[in-house]
Amino acid sequence: MSDVVPSGGWSRSPDDQRRYDLVSGLVIAVLGLILLAASFLTESPVPLTVRGAVVIFSAVGVAVAAGWLRPQNSQDFYGGMALILLSLTAFVASNELPGMRGIAFGPGTAPRLFAFALAVLSLVVVASGLMARGPHVTPFKVRGIVFILGAILVFAATIRTLGLVIASFACIVVCAAAAEDVRWRETVIWAAILTAFCALLFPYGLNLPFQLWPPFW
């Protein structure tokens, strides 16, 4: 399904784009600073080059927020920046792992190898996002994210403590709110049917160890 609809759009007013860059730039700068702070919490000191890269990363965020840097292709620019952040985080997180010991790889060698390669390639992506014009990022569907994630987290939080029946029912109801055309009466009935089906299928039909009801009952 994903292959039919190309993501990204071209139409967006300059004002909207400006606001988007401002917010995203600030997010980048803040995340960079958090990572920088975290790099002082590790037991062994993080190499200066990594810290320097984190500082530059934050600076780019500030530059974008202030409008000194104008990303031409938001998809590439912000996508690449996020991947750079990921690789910098990997550098900080794998800092304490020993590297090469003579001819043998240490546990830290491969993570840093991959993180380095990722950082280099992402840098190229970011650079191309600054140079060539490209589609903007289409608006995120906040409603979908909130309720779908909410439903998953509700399930995770309640499955152990309240059992399968309550967890499923709650999960389905929260989840259904993600659709714009949600109808509550229908949803409750549908949730009851699905819950009954799950409560029969998984513990009885498939013999999986599930607690159906809260243990304190």
Binding site: A151, I152, A156, S168, I172, C175, A179, V182, L194, C198
Partner: peptide, 14 residues
């Protein structure tokens, strides 16, 4: 679809 995706979500969670 509003009936389908809650079903998919709950099956995936379980």
């Amino acid at each position: 679809y509003r009936h389908l995706f809650p079903m998919i979500v709950i099956f995936c969670c379980i």
